[in-house]
Design a binder for these strands. Structure first.
Lengths: 271, 271
DNA sequence: CGACGATATTCCGCTGGGTGGAACGTGTCT
DNA sequence: AGACACGTTCCACCCAGCGGAATATCGTCG
């Protein structure tokens, strides 16, 4: 049996740190009142243990007490905003997202690759936005989003292979699920300079994305505009998206923001 | 002496949990390459301890390895976006922030009270924004910001007293530092329905804010528009801000979002 | 080139912080 | 009142975590 004796798989939590993280991880998106008993159930940890950990986390601010339980605390929000790469990209891209929104009045998004998914870092959302519930911090499969395709088109082969190996899961009738077709699409993205999502994630929703390059010409993020099929024409909007991403790329290169690590942008004055 | 015998003050870290949090807390805003030695210094913890904790946190994703050290990891960003109250308010307010930005082309902000400070939850920032560096997740003293005054004007007496007790620190020549004057200003806010910051935080920067009320008529957040003094007239913009906050308040009440705790907004379908 | 200083990483025997089963207190059903 | 579920406290056991010290690694001097 390959099954190691560690016996984590099912939720064996050796170290305290593991347990703490398990507790925090037990909270789903936007849950506002998880009881201690519920946490005990989800984590599989003994009740007193969860109780103590939760109490300490509350003291720190990572959790907050609610009427009948706990919720994630404001401290985590503040910490999340400190994460350097995310913060830097967001800050740089935001004005351009605004421009795009103002020009199109459709949702505009900023996303990066995170494994085989797209992680959304920022989003400009108006009143009559598309029906899709998509929050900053959420992830979607890379192969069925315009941002994902825009990034994969310029990514290393292994990354693309990883996505294909993970399986091109079908979400709608139009989702591209054949590896050959998918790779051909990515080549098309390089040719045109932008990627289109034609109802491949949600029926009735289309989007167009273009990549942002850093100083090393690596595609580190992408911007997309999303809207209802029929109401917007991705190919007509594409030039605007490209204009924005080119501008951002230029700034990024100027500031020296590099690839996945080492982010010398906005370093403190001590440098 | 009030000083408890706990002996935390200087950095006595009894429990492992304390230590972990100390390590995470050691990261400042947007730091992208903190060495292990530096963390050791900041936390005051033994080197091997910091090393082990950092390694585990990297495994989990709360930290990431960089060329010569660590930075806060994407996992924290994702967690931060899960925090229910912040996420709910942001999502609700964002379209209106966009409206205000489009109408004024000045920075628009969403903030809440956090102790005696204002915590900024969202921000719409254009190209020719004011010179003030203000990031989402940052805090500023409540008494010298328009959002802070808008919220304090409707807050309970104790909260206002707390701010005054903390000291009305002077930031510019125009900062209101006299308690009596300050309280009179807050009464003026209630009369007019909006609060103005007239170069009280940064010279040359003015702003105007109005509060957002929940179903219990508690002021839970506020929206502001910020711009260079002379270029914008707070009193002229105020009606637009108020229109936005009234609309948000109505939606908030409709969804039943309540005060500081228990946030039934967007609860999962199980409810 | 070798010595030095600063850093990252590993080692290992000791110990006290964390553990979790059990008991207790409280609120809410039928 | 009894039954149940939940939050909270207790306490004796014990192993996870500790941290001083040793080792490895790197860059930078004289």
């Amino acid at each position: 049996m390959i099954r190691a004796s560690d016996a984590d798989e099912t939720g064996q939590h050796r170290s305290l740190l593991q347990r703490i993280l398990t507790v925090i991880d037990a909270f789903e998106h936007n849950e506002w009142d998880v009881s201690l008993a519920e946490l005990t159930r989800r984590t599989g940890l003994p009740k007193p243990t969860v109780y103590r950990i939760a109490r300490e986390l509350v003291r720190w601010g990572a959790l907050e007490r609610t009427e009948h339980g706990y919720q994630l605390g404001v401290k985590l929000f503040m910490l999340g905003e400190r994460v350097p790469r995310q913060a830097a990209l967001r800050e740089l891209a935001q004005p351009f997202l605004e421009d795009l929104y103002e020009a199109t009045h459709e949702n505009t998004n900023l996303g990066v690759l995170h494994g085989t998914d797209v992680l959304y870092l920022a989003r400009v959302q108006g009143h009559r936005s598309s029906p899709v519930v998509l929050r900053v911090g959420d992830t979607l499969p890379a192969h069925s989003t315009s941002i994902g395709k825009a990034l994969l088109a310029y990514a290393r082969r292994e990354v693309v292979q990883e996505v294909i190996d993970a399986g091109l899961a079908r979400h709608t009738a139009r989702t591209v699920v054949m590896p050959g077709m998918f790779i051909r699409q990515l080549q098309g993205v390089v040719d045109k300079g932008y990627a289109v999502n034609d109802e491949e994630t949600h029926t009735g929703v289309v989007s167009v994305a273009a990549p942002i390059f850093d100083a090393h010409d690596e595609a580190v993020a992408a911007i997309s505009v999303t809207g209802r099929a029929g109401r917007i024409d991705p190919h007509r909007i594409a030039p605007a998206v490209r204009t924005a991403t080119l501008a951002i790329s230029r700034r990024l290169a100027g500031q020296g923001l590099t690839g996945s690590h080492e982010t010398p942008i906005m370093r403190s004055a001590s440098g």
